[in-house]
């Protein structure tokens, strides 16, 4: 689905990514692990066309996405859920969702409002409320639902478990499982190894902008020194 090759990114003079290479297969959930500042968010933003200075290659279904503006990448079928819950605070829940709405795609599941409301029952209750009046957990759910309105084939989830209460983290795990059931491919960035292990099929570890590890969780467990070194758990 998604193939990143030798991706280099920088902000101003500061190089963040050094030759990142990774793949995401069809209907696969892959975790991108690493500490804060390791380059997880920058990887996602680079895939999404939100970092201006970059080189390398981002292939989505074989087509080059690098250098394309983010709206083109989104329309091609890549959905992005940012880490800071960037909802539109002055818009209602329903309007937030409508901003994300895109045409139905023949080869991807279609997410209707009804479907989303069953997945996120809180949002239905609050559909007329302004974004700013939602709780942190509800905002997190809204960012995901808004991205799903675009009927993506690939979803990039940036730090879905960060800064939310354990009960909501559980709900988040169910949502990711549902995405996989629907046939989507999901890339999540995580610092929380337990959460990542629970929801994803395999993992990459990124450290200081370079890929340090690639493999399944079973393999990762067999090498405790790897997670100790790069994740410091």
């Amino acid at each position: 689905m998604l193939e990143v090759r030798e991706l280099n990114s920088q902000y101003g003079g500061a190089k963040i990514l050094h030759g990142v290479t990774m793949t995401l297969g069809a209907n696969e959930v892959v975790a991108l692990l690493g500490r804060n500042g390791a380059g997880k968010s920058t990887t996602m933003k680079s895939i999404m066309g939100m970092v201006r200075q970059k080189s390398g290659s981002v292939l989505y279904e074989g087509a080059e996405m690098l250098g394309r503006p983010s709206h083109v990448i989104c329309r091609a079928g890549v959905g992005y859920v940012p880490e800071e819950r960037r909802i539109f605070k002055e818009l209602t829940v329903e309007e937030n969702l409508s901003v994300g709405k895109r045409e139905k795609r023949a080869d991807a599941p279609e997410w209707t409002l009804d479907h989303l409301y069953t997945l996120f029952p809180n949002l239905k209750e609050r559909r007329r409320n302004l974004g700013k009046h939602l709780s942190g957990g509800e905002q997190q759910m809204l960012t995901i639902a808004r991205t799903l309105m675009g009927n993506p084939k690939v979803v990039l989830l940036d730090e879905p478990s960060e800064g939310i209460a354990p009960v909501i983290v559980e709900q988040m795990a169910h949502v990711i499982a549902e995405l996989k059931r629907e046939g989507l491919s999901v890339l999540i960035s995580e610092q929380n190894l337990h959460f990542a292990r629970l929801v994803s099929d395999r993992a990459y570890i990124i450290e200081k902008g370079q890929m340090r590890y690639e493999g399944t969780f079973a393999e990762l467990d067999a090498q405790p020194e790897v997670s100790a070194k790069y994740l410091a758990v």
Partner: peptide, 11 residues
């Protein structure tokens, strides 16, 4: 206020 939010586990 949430002193460790956004940090890696060992940090």
């Amino acid at each position: 206020d949430e002193p460790t939010a956004g940090m890696a586990p060992n940090e």
